[in-house]
Write a protein that binds this DNA or RNA. Structure first.
Lengths: 193, 193
DNA sequence: CAACATCGCAACTTTTTGTTGCGATAATGT
DNA sequence: ACATTATCGCAACAAAAAGTTGCGATGTTG
């Protein structure tokens, strides 16, 4: 019963967002009387908090394909699967609410995800696949940012080819030294031609 | 009067989201009686639609700094300013609602923004700053994705140094030929070491 | 099988949401 | 200047949603 309600909660979160969440709608969707929900979670905030804790983005079982490219693709695919479900999208949208408890949850969730990703980068660095001078936080931003923007903000889906082009683009930037071709590169200073 | 209400609407949208929007709260915030709001915009959807049309992301006056790097930075700074205001964040969040009218608005808004950005890329290509074989859509995804993720999804702000590092990273990827250093580059096929 | 806990259900109160009628005020046109 | 028209605020109302309570049914535990 508890499981059905929390499940219904994230589905409703995906549909109407945190602000529009109605306890009765959750109860109905869960096939349960509203009093049952009210009794166990007196306020909307507690219900949402419980649901988020339950379905908090499962930590990616940081895939180990043997290559940085493969590992990053696996990470992105994991996020894509998450965000492709009503559950995952609901959780993500709910985590954007500016309720204090929720924001704290959001931070901790994100921290776990980032650390999991950094593990992959560490392994790559040990293999010599990743130079030490690359900004790893920025690297993750550039990888996950576009994916989350597409799926969460724009509500679209992406195919595997897009993910590969994304990873290849980013790796091209990271794995090469600074721009050296003066004919193509933009001058760093002195704007206005 | 109309202006105050629409302004209050986007502020409320930023605060509670589309689902949680209350006409009375909007009226109060606008310093207006609720009947005034109800008479002009009978439904919540019409009110939101009007507010979004009014404050729709102003089309960036595509800055022309003379360099691709400078132009991209200006575009990103424009987005940062937009998303840094309650208005801009409210509009963006509202555009994520899955109301059919709203989604249509979202599409058209986004189309305008993308075309404006493509203008910058076209100019750069004519100057010879941008190879013809780069995926321009992906380029924009990789630039705006991380920024929107940080500001909209995570609710953070970014400083100018971050924007510069972002642009430089992306340009490094775009302005250089494919990876050629076999010692560093990950093999394209044959995963699992 | 007795004690306890959990749920559904219906009736209820409270709060929020949306509607209507009317008087005050100000803009518009002749 | 004066009648007409439109717009707003206000209070009173109606309708719907949110939240509460008491109780009987069912099921679980020891």
């Amino acid at each position: 019963m508890v499981g059905a309600v929390l499940e219904a909660t994230v589905e409703e979160l995906a549909r109407v967002g945190f602000g529009g969440l109605s306890t009765e709608a959750v109860a109905t969707r869960a096939g349960v009387n509203k009093t049952t929900v009210y009794r166990r979670w007196p306020t909307r905030g507690e219900l949402v908090r419980a649901a988020l804790l339950e379905f908090q983005a499962r930590v990616f079982e940081d895939a180990d394909t043997g290559t940085l490219r493969g590992d990053l693709l696996e990470l992105l695919r994991g996020v894509r699967v998450q965000l492709g479900t009503a559950r995952g999208r609901g959780v993500t949208l709910a985590l954007m609410a500016d309720d204090p408890h929720v924001r704290q949850l959001a931070r901790s969730t994100r921290r776990v995800a980032v650390e999991s990703s950094l593990t992959v980068l560490d392994r790559a660095a040990r293999r010599g696949e990743l130079p030490d001078d690359v900004d790893r936080a920025l690297l993750l931003d550039v990888l996950f940012g576009p994916l989350e923007q597409k799926m969460v903000i724009e509500g679209l889906t992406v195919d595997d080819a897009w993910l590969e082009r994304l990873v290849d683009l980013v790796l091209r930037a990271v794995l090469q030294p600074a721009v050296t071709n003066p004919a193509r590169a933009a001058p760093k200073r002195r704007a206005r031609s």
